[in-house]
Computed example of a mutant assay.
Amino acid sequence: MVTSIDPSLLISNKSNTISTGNSSLGKDEFLKILMAQLQNQDPLNPMEDKEFIAQMAQFSTLEQTTNMSSLLEKFINTQTQSDSILKYSEMIGKQVEWKSTDDTGSGIVKSIKQSDTGIILELDNGEEISSDSITKVSMAE
């Protein structure tokens, strides 16, 4: 008796479209693949210890790299914000001239503060100006 294979099951009849979600694998996807591999392994020929340990080391490395990237990003953001206010703090006690779209003026910087829009300089006359509008800085007279 000869058994024939249904031609619709041949690989050549299948479409070549490959559907992928995200182009990069994160730690969650890696862990899912590892768990699926462990659940579907052949009980008579299980994964060797060396392979399992290597995969767990890769997972641990991936997790640590992700954590380090997140911490580095937070550190850079903190440094950027701190540097701005420290940089402008050198202007305290100095004479500044400023120009905005509808006004110009000058005064001595009394204090510096950070707002959502950027660095704000408070002058000795109580006026507050944005650091972006400063045109000249000089020694106070």
Score class of each variant (00 low, 15 high):
residue 4 S to I: 02
residue 4 S to R: 00
residue 4 S to L: 02
residue 6 D to L: 04
residue 6 D to G: 05
residue 6 D to W: 00
residue 9 L to D: 05
residue 10 L to T: 00
residue 10 L to Q: 03
residue 10 L to E: 01
residue 10 L to C: 04
residue 11 I to R: 10
residue 11 I to P: 00
residue 12 S to Y: 07
residue 13 N to V: 07
residue 13 N to D: 05
residue 14 K to P: 01
residue 14 K to T: 01
residue 16 N to Y: 03
residue 17 T to S: 01
residue 17 T to Y: 00
residue 18 I to R: 13
residue 18 I to E: 14
residue 19 S to I: 07
residue 20 T to G: 01
residue 21 G to E: 06
residue 22 N to F: 11
residue 24 S to V: 15
residue 25 L to R: 07
residue 25 L to E: 09
residue 26 G to W: 06
residue 26 G to Q: 08
residue 27 K to M: 15
residue 28 D to G: 02
residue 28 D to I: 01
residue 29 E to R: 03
residue 31 L to A: 13
residue 32 K to S: 10
residue 33 I to P: 08
residue 35 M to L: 14
residue 37 Q to A: 12
residue 37 Q to V: 15
residue 39 Q to P: 09
residue 41 Q to L: 10
residue 41 Q to V: 08
residue 44 L to E: 11
residue 46 P to C: 08
residue 47 M to Q: 08
residue 50 K to A: 15
residue 52 F to P: 09
residue 54 A to K: 12
residue 55 Q to G: 01
residue 56 M to T: 12
residue 56 M to P: 08
residue 57 A to L: 10
residue 58 Q to R: 11
residue 58 Q to N: 15
residue 59 F to Y: 15
residue 59 F to L: 13
residue 61 T to V: 08
residue 61 T to M: 10
residue 61 T to Y: 15
residue 61 T to Q: 13
residue 62 L to A: 03
residue 63 E to L: 09
residue 65 T to Y: 02
residue 66 T to C: 14
residue 66 T to E: 15
residue 66 T to V: 13
residue 68 M to V: 05
residue 71 L to V: 03
residue 73 E to Q: 08
residue 74 K to A: 03
residue 74 K to R: 03
residue 74 K to P: 01
residue 75 F to C: 13
residue 75 F to V: 11
residue 76 I to D: 00
residue 76 I to E: 05
residue 77 N to H: 11
residue 78 T to H: 13
residue 80 T to G: 05
residue 81 Q to A: 06
residue 81 Q to H: 03
residue 81 Q to K: 04
residue 82 S to E: 06
residue 82 S to M: 05
residue 84 S to N: 00
residue 86 L to Q: 05
residue 89 S to V: 08
residue 90 E to N: 11
residue 90 E to F: 11
residue 91 M to Q: 12
residue 91 M to C: 14
residue 93 G to D: 03
residue 94 K to A: 06
residue 94 K to L: 07
residue 95 Q to N: 11
residue 96 V to Y: 14
residue 98 W to N: 02
residue 99 K to Y: 13
residue 100 S to I: 05
residue 101 T to K: 14
residue 102 D to K: 15
residue 104 T to Q: 12
residue 105 G to E: 03
residue 106 S to W: 11
residue 106 S to H: 09
residue 107 G to F: 04
residue 108 I to M: 07
residue 109 V to D: 14
residue 112 I to V: 09
residue 113 K to A: 13
residue 114 Q to H: 12
residue 114 Q to T: 15
residue 118 G to F: 06
residue 119 I to Q: 11
residue 120 I to T: 01
residue 120 I to C: 04
residue 123 L to Y: 02
residue 123 L to A: 09
residue 123 L to R: 06
residue 124 D to H: 09
residue 125 N to Y: 07
residue 125 N to T: 06
residue 127 E to H: 02
residue 129 I to S: 00
residue 129 I to A: 05
residue 130 S to C: 02
residue 130 S to R: 05
residue 131 S to W: 03
residue 132 D to A: 02
residue 135 T to N: 07
residue 138 S to Q: 11
residue 141 E to G: 04
